[in-house]
Amino acid sequence: MSDIKQLDVTIMGREFRVACPAEEEETLLEAVRMLDTKMHEIRESGKVIGIEKVAIMAALNFAHEYLHVEAGGFDIAAYQRRINLMNATLDAALQDQAELF
């Protein structure tokens, strides 16, 4: 079982205490740096005011980037949508076949 560490981190000048497994400390600290940087970029753009709105916009940015990650030259989100469509098509076709058995 891994040890849980309590870390004090600063995001947008505010301090937070977070817990994480000891072996994940560096990853968590990198995530904090990324979030702090993204939130500062959003605030400096002048288009979003209020820490909560800045945090939401940062989260949306990260979620959007995650869904559009390109790995090996293809868009994972696009392939997920195509797979879901193929599954729905197969399910519909198999539903008709179920009546044969």
Rank of each mutant, 00 (worst) to 15 (best):
E15N: 13
Q6T: 15
A59M: 05
K53H: 08
I51D: 10
E99H: 04
I83M: 08
L29N: 08
H64W: 13
I4T: 14
T27H: 15
K5V: 02
N61S: 14
I51S: 06
R43C: 02
A88F: 02
M57F: 09
D36F: 05
F101E: 03
E23I: 12
L67S: 05
E44V: 04
R81I: 06
E65V: 01
S2W: 10
A22I: 13
A31N: 09
H40N: 15
A63F: 03
E30R: 11
M39N: 01
L29C: 07
E24K: 13
T37G: 03
V32T: 09
K53N: 11
N84M: 07
R81M: 12
Q80Y: 01
N87P: 01
C20R: 08
R33G: 03
A98I: 10
F62L: 08
L60K: 14
N61E: 11
M39H: 04
Y66M: 04
V9K: 05
I51M: 09
S45P: 00
R14S: 13
M86K: 14
P21K: 07
Q6K: 15
L35W: 00
V48L: 10
M39K: 04
F16I: 06
E41A: 07
V9E: 08
L85V: 12
A88L: 07
E99P: 00
A19K: 14
A77H: 15
D36E: 11
A55E: 08
T89K: 15
R81L: 04
E65H: 12
I83Q: 05
I56N: 03
G13M: 03
E65R: 04
T89N: 14
S45D: 15
R33I: 03
F101L: 12
Q95G: 00
T37L: 05
E70M: 05
A71H: 05
A77S: 11
E44L: 07
E15Y: 06
I11E: 02
A88R: 06
D36M: 06
F62K: 05
E41I: 09
M86G: 00
L94N: 01
L85Y: 05
M86Y: 14
I4S: 14
E65P: 00
A78K: 14
M12R: 03
M57C: 06
E44N: 14
